[in-house]
């Protein structure tokens, strides 16, 4: 009875999923054939698929180097987010004079678009001598206010008595954070990983500004550069897109179970 009642819903969900996935399928299909995406009538299945486009991308531009840059910068950003956001969030769960004002300040800073702070950010990075370096590329993405609040909410959901018990057990603040809070807040960690990875992986504006050396460029910049190199872009371009997307998907798939739990935390608890 129940299963029968469910199937229209499942069918509807399947249709929606399919619609969402069509553009992505089209990208993969085009990358394997290079056919005109506006061809009419459109072909559902790729004809004579091949991997030449991928080979082109790998050799035409220093793709491995861009990939390395992107990976390193994103790792820095992810690491920075976890460590710095967790520390900041932990501080915000403790009582200290002026805490309300700090929270307010952070919240209001969320309203400022990155573009508005890009010049001071550039000047600071330059002053630090970090232009054209991996650290410089990651610098403005090392901490994100939204993600601080993700941690803060998760920490506040941990029973107070657990932290008291840890203090009685002789742990200092850093160990309470590392040994008690973080292990209990894996969904918040996953959320931090995914969000900061995506933001850093897709970032275009900042790398464009702080890199001078083409060898320090990241994948999104490489994509732009690539477009100016290749004439018949279609197939190669789409191959490039797939190659940029795949690492992000991999990270998401690895962290998604915890991520989902983070997004729906509290929704199902009694």
């Amino acid at each position: 009875m129940r299963a029968r009642g469910m199937w229209p819903r499942h069918a509807a969900l399947l249709v929606v999923c399919a619609i969402m996935l069509v553009p992505f399928y089209w990208v993969v299909k085009t990358s394997l054939t290079g056919e005109n995406i506006y061809a009419y009538p459109p072909r559902l299945l790729p004809q004579a698929p091949h991997l030449f486009n991928y080979v082109d991308v790998w050799y035409l531009i220093p793709f491995p180097r861009y990939l390395l840059n992107s990976v390193i910068v994103s790792l820095l950003a992810v690491g920075g987010n976890i460590v710095l956001n967790a520390l900041a969030a932990y501080a915000l769960t403790r009582a200290f004079p002026g805490r309300r004002w700090v929270v307010l300040l952070l919240l209001s800073c969320m309203l400022i678009p990155f573009q508005a702070t890009i010049i001071p950010a550039y000047l600071i990075t330059a002053r630090l001598g970090l232009l054209n370096s991996w650290l410089g590329l990651a610098l403005p993405m090392l901490s994100t206010i939204v993600c601080i609040f993700v941690f803060k909410a998760a920490f506040e959901a941990v029973p107070r008595s657990l932290i008291d018990a840890a203090r009685m057990d002789g742990l200092g603040d850093l160990r309470i954070l590392a040994r008690v809070l973080l292990p209990l807040c894996k969904p918040a960690i996953a959320t931090n990983v995914i969000l900061s990875f995506i933001w850093s992986w897709n970032n275009f504006m900042w790398p464009l500004i702080v890199t001078r050396d083409p060898l320090m460029q990241t994948l999104p910049l490489g994509l732009a550069r690539f477009l100016s190199y290749v004439e018949d872009t279609t197939g190669a371009l789409y191959a490039f897109v797939v190659m940029v997307l795949v690492p992000g998907l991999a990270v998401f798939l690895m962290a998604q179970k915890e991520f989902m739990r983070g997004l729906t935390a509290g929704a199902t608890k009694g």
């Binding site: 029973p159 008595s161 657990l162 008291d164 840890a166 009685m168 002789g170 292990p183 209990l184």
Partner: peptide, 19 residues
């Protein structure tokens, strides 16, 4: 500090580390 008082405490909700 609590850790330097050599006191152990049992809490109402047990406060066992779930992990």
């Amino acid at each position: 500090e609590p850790k330097d008082r050599d006191i152990a405490m049992v809490f109402q909700d047990y406060a066992l580390y779930p992990h």
